[in-house]
Amino acid sequence: MTDTTDEIEQRCIDIIAKSKNIAPESISLASSFDSLAIDSLDKINISFEVEEAFDIEIPDDALGSLKTVGDVVNGVRKLVGQPADSNATQ
């Protein structure tokens, strides 16, 4: 796996920004899905995009625990085998 931590963060943010048609600069790791107006369907569509981008498979029941962008980034890190960043959810 060649993604660095920063690359993972940036790619996740880009996916979310594109999905919601908002500027990536307005999204941080602390951004909550609620604050970005991400509903259940958005979350699922984002999960498909993330799976494709990182060639990973997100368990179907994992989405309920994802509340922030940082949660997504940490989840991706886990699935690609990189240690989670403790700052990612702050």
């Binding site: 259940s40 369907l41 699922i44 999960s47 498909f48 368990p59 179907d60 029941d61 989405l63 309920g64």
Partner: peptide, 14 residues
């Protein structure tokens, strides 16, 4: 259209 959406929605209903 996308059967995976059904799986994922149902799996996250609690």
């Amino acid at each position: 259209e996308e059967p995976r959406i059904l799986n994922r929605l149902h799996a996250n209903c609690g």
